[in-house]
């Protein structure tokens, strides 16, 4: 088992690009509040991306809802460590419902980067261990970029629910997501095949 403090600190935007490059079957990706969804956006907009606003901690629950509604589609929740910390109970819910098509990716920089880099109150916490404690048996830290690629491949090829945690360096996001919630929702629904409209998408 790879413990948290041995995991290499990686660049969020690089990991996001690596994730998006592996998505070939219209997999849904839910980006949590702030810098996680900014870098998801920067990695190249897809119709199957949903970029959350203020509901800090809800990337995993939103992804769970999508996964339950469309069991044939793989769904990724990309969540920050501070955000997950606000809604740890959702890991128990995911483990209990055990949707095969859901993967959770936690991006842990240890700080509230968007508000000035204050440390989270989780200096001694191990998110993969927390996930395993909730019942997500395969939860693991990605040791480095190659290990991250291997774990993402596992999410795509095998039944979940899956949980990957990564340690991040302190680089800022590349840019910011366009904030237009109804448009983001509309595009995402079309990307999910849940909405048909003659209005141009």
């Amino acid at each position: 088992m790879i413990v948290a403090h041995n995991a290499k600190r990686m660049y969020r935007f690089d990991l996001m690009q690596r994730l998006v490059a592996r998505l070939e079957h219209e997999e849904a990706v839910i980006g949590g509040i702030g810098n996680t969804n900014f870098d998801l956006w920067s990695a190249g907009h897809r119709a199957q991306n949903f970029y959350m606003l203020g509901s800090m901690g809800l990337a995993v629950p939103i992804a769970l809802g999508v996964a339950l509604a469309q069991p044939e589609r793989k769904v990724f929740a990309v969540e920050g460590d501070g955000s997950l910390l606000m809604q740890l109970g959702c890991l128990a819910t995911v483990a209990t419902l055990a949707p095969k098509n859901l993967a959770i990716l936690v991006m842990d920089n240890g700080v509230y980067q968007i508000t000035g880099g204050q440390e989270t109150p989780a200096a001694r916490a191990d998110y993969a261990a927390i996930a395993r404690g909730c019942g997500l048996a395969g939860a693991a830290w990605a040791a480095d970029e190659a290990d991250f690629e291997r774990l993402v491949g596992q999410c795509l090829a095998t039944d979940g629910p899956h949980f990957i945690a990564v340690k991040l360096d302190d680089q800022p996001p590349v840019t910011q997501t366009e904030r237009d919630p109804p448009q983001i929702r509309d595009r995402f629904m079309r990307g999910m095949g849940a909405k048909r409209s003659k209005l141009l998408g």
């Binding site: 901690g57 995993v60 629950p61 769970l64 809802g65 996964a67 809604q87 959702c90 999910m192 095949g193």
Partner: peptide, 16 residues
């Protein structure tokens, strides 16, 4: 309850 709001929002956007 917050979690449930997220789940229902996600499910609706995906057709349920």
């Amino acid at each position: 309850e917050e979690e449930a709001v997220g789940i229902v929002a996600g499910a609706w956007m995906a057709g349920t």
